[in-house]
Nucleic acid binder design. Sequence first.
DNA 1: CAGCATCCAATGAGATACTG
DNA 2: CAGTATCTCATTGGATGCTG
Lengths: 122, 122
Amino acid sequence: MRKHNSTNALNEQAILDQCGMAYTLSLIGGRWKPSILWALIRNDKVRYSHFKKVIPEISDRILALHLRELEADKLIRRVVYAEVPPRVEYELTDLGRSMEVMLEQMTTWGAFHKEAVKGSAT
Amino acid sequence: MRKHNSTNALNEQAILDQCGMAYTLSLIGGRWKPSILWALIRNDKVRYSHFKKVIPEISDRILALHLRELEADKLIRRVVYAEVPPRVEYELTDLGRSMEVMLEQMTTWGAFHKEAVKGSAT
DNA sequence: CAGCATCCAATGAGATACTG
DNA sequence: CAGTATCTCATTGGATGCTG
């Protein structure tokens, strides 16, 4: 059977359900989500254009897409100012803030791991 | 320019370099890696066939592939017993153990987030 | 400025069959 | 038992151009 309705997607669903860890990964697992989150953590409010400044390589599509996903996951909030030159700011929600420690730990561990591997890790 | 040597890959490299968080994600970011790691955390030694028991949906290819990656990243160790019926056991390295707390935190946060979103998250 | 829409490329994952 | 090889498909990410 070649044409099933995506084993991949089904599998993912199953995993997300059974393992909170995979669930978490799915929330922050986009290519650029770490960078976006990071920018939000360091700055209270971030404008669309600011994202593009701190993450120059990202494309509009991906940025907008990831922002929407994060918003849908209640991690960030989108604040629109109905002004003449459109202005939109993004900020972390409480939920978003609640993952700061986790993200910092990931950063720390990542650095630690990188060191260990470079050296003579077991 | 359509045919560069993978912007995607280059981007990923750049991210990994600047952000330990993304680096960490890249280590545990495979579809099944969480499950594999989880199995390793709960059991000291896990045989190839055991993985397939606890993760029935995984295919041989992906399992072997992920195991190799984790091994390359020094997170797990592959112990081969040159016996008549081939036996191979996998276990966490010290480095692998060092991420237990992080993974647990991710699990906890994931559960927390799931609850929050289900309710009336901000 | 902020952001969609369309289209294309690259990666990751799955099925199946075969081997030491 | 514990894989490997090949091949295909799904998903994700990227480039470009257009709009309110």
